[in-house]
Write a protein that binds this DNA or RNA. Structure first.
Length: 187
DNA sequence: TACTGGATTCACT
DNA sequence: GTGAATCCAGTAA
């Protein structure tokens, strides 16, 4: 399969996909395709957040309650006053979410370049939200409502898993990566 | 009501 | 490698 074919996949990911264990969801989201207003990218880096000190879910607040009450919903928040981060809530009976850290751009590259004012489009959580024009307007909405996620039958090997310490918090987060360009050239 | 600091990015050295 | 930008959620009072 060529990467152009991947961009054309129309099989939507079911909400139940997010009902499961956060780490499992974070792993399996790799290779899935996000579309927002016609702009598309393949997920190549994710980060799993459960109920721990490094996560918003460490305390149930107005902002983080989405992580407690829901799965398969979009959780967007502002960091450092400048950038949004895109997450999907997970697990039916426990708080959790998966942060999307990096995408491989597939469609709408010109639009992304214009929004980013750069050729570095989606290689960070803040960057990809800027490229896709994701903001608080989609916070709390169901997946496949405004923002769509497409499934595929492709199997990806996780090329790297890192445990990441978050500043003051002692807890470590799990990040998962697949190779973007290398994989796309092999499809 | 006021203060603190952050799941980031970018410019500059 | 370092520091600034920027603003809102969370917390303390």
């Amino acid at each position: 399969m060529r990467w152009k074919d991947v961009a054309g996949i129309k099989k939507k990911l079911s909400k139940d996909f997010f009902k499961r264990d956060t780490i499992q969801v974070a792993k399996e989201l790799l290779g899935k395709i996000i579309e927002f207003n016609g702009v598309k990218g393949m997920i190549v880096e994710t980060e799993a957040y459960g109920k721990d000190e490094a996560s918003h879910a460490s305390k149930k607040t107005e902002r983080s309650k989405l992580m407690y009450n829901t799965f398969g919903k979009i959780y967007v928040y502002l960091v450092y006053g400048n950038y949004y981060c895109l997450n999907f809530t997970t697990e039916e009976n426990a708080p959790g979410a998966v942060l999307i850290r990096s995408l491989e751009p597939l469609n709408g590259l010109d639009i992304m370049k214009r929004r980013r004012k750069s050729d570095d489009l989606t290689t960070g959580p803040g960057k990809l939200c800027q490229a896709l024009n994701i903001n608080l307007l989609v916070n709390g909405t169901d997946i496949n409502d405004k923002l769509k996620i497409y499934d595929n039958d492709l199997k990806f090997d996780i090329v790297k898993t890192t445990r990441v310490g978050i500043s003051k918090a002692k807890d470590l987060k799990l990040r998962f990566y697949i190779k973007g360009n290398d994989y796309i050239s092999q499809l």
